[in-house]
């Protein structure tokens, strides 16, 4: 079972990229992440949402959905669109691979998601859309310290 859940739906406008990452960060903040962990989540969300806008909908109007879940100390994010889908997921994951070099895209989107989150799953069907599921475990820094101290390992 989930400890908490939220859903977000918004138009595929680039001005919503900041809205999406800030909202998800506010949701994830319940787990008391470090500033760095929060920055990782924000960046990964920004990459996935931008992909939906540029590649999924190719700058046409569409709906992007984000489902956020907290399961113990893990944040799970499901970011989906009903855009054109990814032809070759394996290729899309490759660093520096981009189909939009003319737009000065770096091809680092999935690489950043993969290195900033613990797990990244891509589910895509041509013509139907793409769903990216990402998980990140938030290290319970303060609780861990309390545990160590209460066990009495440190005298």
């Amino acid at each position: 079972m989930y400890d908490n859940e939220m859903r977000l739906e918004f138009l595929s406008k680039s001005s919503n990229e900041a809205f999406a990452r800030i909202t998800v960060a506010a949701f994830a903040a319940q787990l008391d992440p470090t500033i760095e962990e929060l920055a990782d989540i924000k960046t990964a969300v920004s990459e996935a949402v931008t992909n939906s806008i540029i590649h999924g909908y190719e700058n046409m109007e569409g709906i992007i959905k984000i489902k956020g879940r907290i399961i113990k100390n893990t944040v799970e994010l499901e970011i989906s669109d009903t855009g054109k889908g990814i032809e070759n997921v394996e290729l899309a994951r490759k660093p520096l691979y981009t189909t939009k070099a003319n737009l000065e895209r770096s091809g680092m989107g999935f690489t950043i998601m993969e290195s900033f989150m613990d797990e990244v799953e891509i589910d895509s069907v041509l013509g139907l859309g793409t769903k990216v599921i990402m998980r990140k475990k938030i290290k319970k820094h303060i609780e861990d310290l309390d545990e160590i101290l209460s066990v009495g390992g440190v005298c």
Partner: peptide, 13 residues
């Protein structure tokens, strides 16, 4: 305070 991969493309350009 924040930059994602769009910044990489912009800088390289």
């Amino acid at each position: 305070t924040f930059m994602d991969s769009a910044g990489i493309g912009m800088i390289i350009g």
